[in-house]
Design a protein around this nucleic acid. Structure first.
Length: 568
RNA sequence: GAUCCGGUAGCUCAGCUGGUAGAGCACCUCACUUUUAAUGAGGUGGUCCUGGGUUCGAAUCCCAGCCGGAUCACCA
């Protein structure tokens, strides 16, 4: 980037930087700064005249002649600091105050403050500055939102594109954004603590997988050079955690960054975080009890209460949650009983409900469509929907009482799935058949089916996996509920964005070349003549000439009301 | 992928039916010793998203494109 591409404010700050260096002040000093206090702690435990040393960004400056106020923002908040010229500069030389503080410090600079605490006449806790140190210069102006007496925010940094692309700026100027991410971390910590106290172990499993299994989704594909094989970014970690249960762990869990090469919208990001936990000798009934305890615990850890607000809805994560079978749910909302119905009867019923169906849909898919259209959206409070049809769940154990169903539940909150759990299928022969069914579906063109069989996973099951229940939770979605954010971009530090395109015109356009060659022939001539020669539209002419005069290639001069054009 | 809305100063935005680009904050200069959206006076700053077209003249109208947001569809 050349100097001329900087805005005037950026140029000023670079000049300021040079002036500081000329004065012998290093704008990026190496030494540590001996911070003793944080702003929040000072406000919580105010002690008059206490000596403190704080550091942070200067976020505002109010200069009133020989005295000034500024605000310092650190990781915990902001505090006001008071500068007095004659105390900063006791001698004749007032440079440190008049030049360095008043002129060479900019909003956004990191400074260190040594001083003592006091309250101003209007009662604001402040630091009386005795010494200040420039810790790091900021070369770009920060947007600085301000709140007026009526609580109205001015100059907010609100453009979502800028906020996501420059999250660092968003975090500096929008404290409520920081709060979301603090809560996100609290959620992860709370969940870890809950699992660890239950005696389960956090593990790591491969992100690069030779066969992307455990879910049905399009993977990202990459290539390993040394082995010369394709590798896939994981779409789920389920099959690896089960291998560990085979290996003899009682309970294993992992916070898994998963990658799916599918559409992006306000609830989907190509990489997202799931938590999966597998516990041996348990079934899905136990897992429901465990899940509701877990979520109550997490909600309280994050928000201090099991209640939370999401949009217009009040949600309570207090256990226990309602449990409804999928069959009962469909009866409740449509009056139709799916039990014992043939594929044709289901298709006719779905059609009758105004759901678009086609001939390729099997029983499971039809039931899923009915549930998705007519039932799912009605569950605002956390509700377990249980006993899904078999075709939809190739990794789940058949229901102990009904061979058409599986021992599966999903937890619905605000009409969306937050968690998914099974009594895990551990019959290796059944598992192999289900995989083979999936391969047949994939060959028929069902792009939701998995086309590759993970033979090693089947080998593991053949050695024997104890009865196990597993649970997966969409962490991004859960934190959206707990922080009342309707879009996933708000709960990810760096949501995926289309790459920034930098438009840089290095070469002359064709029009510009045309004009330039015409002018080169004559060196200097009447502007109107040249314009006529090149025969461009007014606008094209105007744009091209403006560009080139700006770049100093051409020069337009006026002599006695006649315009001339010449080589610059 | 479809539809709608938007892209103007560092930030938030105004700019009617085409006629010399505006405000507040930020920035610069000056004044001011407890202010708090500090205040008062003066000033700098723009590829009006890009490209083409219509026109004497386009931020404004037309076409194409790029980028973003919202809604819907898809993604169990």
């Amino acid at each position: 980037m050349s100097f001329s591409e900087l805005s005037s404010q950026e140029i000023q700050r670079r000049e300021t930087l040079n002036k500081l260096r000329e004065m012998g002040i290093e704008p990026y000093p190496a030494a540590l700064y001996p911070v003793t206090d944080y702003t929040q702690g000072i406000k919580d435990n105010f002690v008059e005249s206490k000596q403190v040393c704080v550091a942070g960004r200067m976020m505002s400056q109010r200069i009133m002649g020989k005295a000034s106020f500024a605000e310092i923002q650190d990781s915990t908040g902001r505090i006001q600091v008071y500068f007095n010229r004659d105390e900063i500069c006791p001698g004749e030389d007032k440079t440190l105050y008049n030049e360095v503080f008043k002129k060479l410090l900019d909003l956004g600079d990191f400074i260190g403050i040594k001083g003592y605490l006091f309250t101003t006449q209007v009662g604001e806790i402040s630091i009386h500055v005795q010494e200040f140190t420039l810790l790091s210069k900021s070369l770009r102006p920060l947007p600085v939102p301000k709140t007026d007496d009526d609580g109205k925010v001015h100059d907010a940094f609100t453009d979502p594109e800028l906020r996501y692309r420059q999250r660092y700026v968003d975090l500096v100027v929008n404290p409520q954004v920081k709060e979301v991410f603090v809560k996100r971390t609290k959620l992860f910590t709370a969940m870890r603590n809950f699992f660890n106290e239950a005696g389960y172990m956090e593990v790591e499993t491969p992100i690069l997988q030779a066969i992307p299994g455990g879910a049905a989704a399009r993977p990202f594909i990459t290539h390993h050079n040394a082995l010369d094989i394709p590798l896939y970014m994981r779409i789920a970690n389920e099959l690896y955690l089960k291998r560990l249960i085979v290996g003899g762990f009682d309970g294993v869990y992992e916070f898994s960054k998963n990658f799916r090469n599918e559409g992006m919208d306000r609830t989907h990001n190509p990489e997202f975080t799931a938590m999966e936990i597998y516990v041996s000798y348990k079934d899905y009934n136990w897992m429901m009890d465990f899940t509701e305890q877990l979520l109550e615990h997490c909600a309280i850890a994050v928000n201090g209460t099991s209640d939370c607000t999401f949009g217009e809805n009040q949600i309570s994560f207090k256990a226990p949650y309602k449990r409804v079978t999928m069959r009962q749910s469909i009866i409740d909302f449509t009056g139709f009983d799916i039990d014992g119905k043939s594929e044709e009867e289901l298709r006719a019923a779905a059609k009758g409900m105004g759901i678009s169906v086609d001939e390729t849909m099997g029983k499971g898919k039809l039931i899923d469509e009915i549930f998705g259209e007519k039932c799912e959206g009605n569950y605002i409070q956390p509700t377990f929907i249980t006993d899904y049809p078999k075709e939809m769940s190739p990794l789940c154990k058949v229901h102990r009482d009904n061979p058409e169903l599986t021992e599966r539940f999903e937890l619905m909150v605000c009409g969306k799935e937050v968690a998914n759990a099974y009594s895990e299928l551990n019959d290796p022969i059944d598992q192999r058949e289900r995989f083979e069914d999936q391969v047949r579906l994939a060959e028929k063109g069902d792009d939701e089916a998995t086309g590759l069989i993970d033979q090693d996973f089947l080998r593991a099951l053949e050695y024997g996996m104890p009865p196990t229940s597993g649970l997966g939770i969409g962490m991004d979605r859960l934190i959206m509920y707990l922080t009342n954010n309707p879009s996933i971009q708000e709960v990810l530090f760096f949501p995926q964005m289309r790459p920034e395109v930098k438009m840089q015109k290095i070469e002359l356009s064709d029009n510009e070349k045309l004009i330039l060659s015409a002018v080169e022939k004559i060196q200097k001539g009447l502007l109107l003549d040249v314009k006529e020669t090149v025969n461009l539209s007014n606008k094209a002419w105007d744009v091209a000439v403006k560009n080139m005069t700006k770049a100093g290639i051409l020069k337009v001069t006026k002599e006695e009301d006649v315009l001339y054009i010449q080589i610059g």
